[in-house]
Design a protein around this nucleic acid. Structure first.
Lengths: 208, 208, 208, 208
DNA sequence: GATGAATGAGGATTCATTCAT
DNA sequence: AATGAATGAATCCTCATTCAT
């Protein structure tokens, strides 16, 4: 190709990305089980054989999808939260980012939820971040909750269901804030304050 | 057989039930997709062909499992709640019953959650009941929530995640009450009251 | 049953006949291959297990159907032809009887043709009678044909196709005579005479 | 491969043809119903899975066999008849070609007849061509027949039965002419003339 | 790298037949 | 005899994966 050296090393990655994104589209529609490799390759505009030039097994693709899902948001969120001091705000920001993203990119939302409630890998990674924040908040006395487990269930639950509604288009633009507020209330934050925190402007996502 | 007339007419139903229960066990272990009909039939102590004397397709079995799941609890809950007047208590009782049942019968819990977050049918049926209660509470001013959708997301979310933790044995005996309390708080009930409601003794399940 | 002794010994036979007739109905609709024993038994108003009280295998039923088909007509035809002297008339009568019967009882016609062109047993038995008549006619110089085989092909061919049209309702009341005339012409009978023979009144069927 | 460019584009088609031809061999031996896809694939020297790279269902294969059967001859016949002016000769040529082909390629003959008298598709397509020729002959007064239906029954009948005898090796080299003559006689052609027409040399098959 | 035909083990479904009641 | 549940071999079809080009 004339453009030359600059894009050569990326071609492989680009094709992989094509496959990952195609996979998400197919997963969103037919569920993760019901998605033949052929369908994914075809959706990506490639022949089925090509798939195996990029992923050794279907499993590996799923792992890649999971990874991609995480990279897309989880870390960004972690970063965007870095400057903030209040655990309540951490939770609020994370929840809103997830929900917002799910509304903007329903396919992403759908697949994230499906994987999040099924594949251990994903749920663990999501949970890990969440749990760390919750623990900190509990320790500091910011959250008043019966147990860590109950807190995790509540926050994760609202988060996932909120994403699900968001990605199926059943929600308005405020939805992210709403579920965020509800989560905070369940963590023992006073309703008025919860509402206020849930409506603060989101901090900017720092450049990678 | 000596038992005689009493069990004759039920033979067919009993076998179906065997299959449904076997299916739940296998589903809980291998997920819903990864369960060959043969495995289910074998788990039920039957030959694979027998399966098809009772269900026309695997899909039909899944539907039956769903139906069975619902019948097992949903209606009991509805009944057990009937005498109560406070929407907050309805929600609390329902949530606790689900969580408790999930702890007692982890397989049931596991399968219910998996189906509840996957199969449209189930989630709709669960949601329908929940939503009715929530609406009533919202109308009466008992719940203070941003939107119906957010309320549904919160309650359903805690419910499902709570069942999941319960059925994986990560929880203590109080867990049902805990998540119930958190749900009530997110609905705008005062923490102290929420806690009190969540710990009231469960009303007895009326005879069928 | 009050009628008592007289019909007891026949009950078994009656049930068998029910099954045979049910089989013909199902065969006519779905072809002979595509007819599960269950479907046949059910069509006969019996449970599938009952089938095996009357026929040891499905094959045996088919044989019985074939036998029944033959008994119904072949022998009657043979008998009805007995008094006649002209081989041309034998052929004409046989052909017309078959076609007529097919028109009156389309199911019978349909099944006879299907079996006649498939199951060796049937075609052989049909052919045997036909061939005997043809041979006689050839020997006597009544038929002028290139070879016995060609003659058999012609007569059997018109016969089967004629039955097929008749049983699918594509024909008028004269059709039996028409194909009969055509067969005679192909056997070398003069058209005028062929026509006359084909329209003679059919001899009565003698009592069994 | 050294042969190179010449055979590349045909690979897929060649495999399909292999399957179609294998199918005909198996059908001829075991009947159409009694032919497992595995058997067909194996007969074609392929794995069973490969079958489904070429035909979505077994039914689709049967359709392809039918199509292939038709293409093999029907069109050639139509073409080879094109120059001729006498409807009687059309019928004669068509009938002889079919019968001859059936003698040369018994498998083809066998399968054609089985499908022709069973599968609606085939019989219709065969009939359509035949009927057109017959109609023309009737209109022009060349054929004297009671009804179109009777004519069709006669010609189709001799044709099919003739092919059947031919493909089971019961016939001599003249058989095609013989049945052709018989058909013409049944259509009202004078025996002497019928015989003459039936023995005229077959017109050459034009290049495609 | 890309292609798409080929592979074959795995899973769903059908159906003739047996058997306890 | 009748019943209908149970059986399991046979069959259709799917799909992850390999391979020659």
């Amino acid at each position: 190709m004339a453009v030359g050296t600059l894009e050569r090393p990326k071609k492989r990655e680009r094709t992989q990305l094509q496959l990952i994104e195609a996979a998400m589209r197919v997963f969103a529609e037919k569920g993760i089980g019901g998605a033949p490799v052929q369908a994914i390759a075809h959706e990506a505009g490639l022949a089925n054989g090509t798939f195996y030039n990029h992923f050794a097994t279907k499993h590996e693709l799923i792992a890649a999808v999971v990874g991609h899902l995480m990279d897309t948001v989880s870390d960004q969120i972690a970063a965007s939260v870095r400057g903030l001091d209040d655990p309540a705000e951490w939770v609020s920001v994370a929840l809103r980012r997830f929900a917002e993203k799910a509304r903007e990119d329903p396919i992403w939302g759908n697949v994230t939820v499906r994987l999040g409630s099924g594949v251990t890998d994903v749920s663990e990674r999501i949970t890990a971040n969440m749990t760390r924040d919750l623990d900190e908040g509990i320790e500091r006395g910011r959250f008043k909750v019966p147990t860590r487990q109950a807190a995790a269930d509540a926050v994760l639950g609202v988060g996932l269901m909120g994403m699900l509604s968001a990605s199926s288009g059943r929600t308005g633009p405020e939805h992210a804030s709403h579920i965020s507020a509800m989560a905070l209330r369940s963590l023992g934050i006073d309703p008025t304050e919860a509402n206020e925190i849930a409506h603060r402007p989101l901090p900017p996502i720092p450049e990678e």
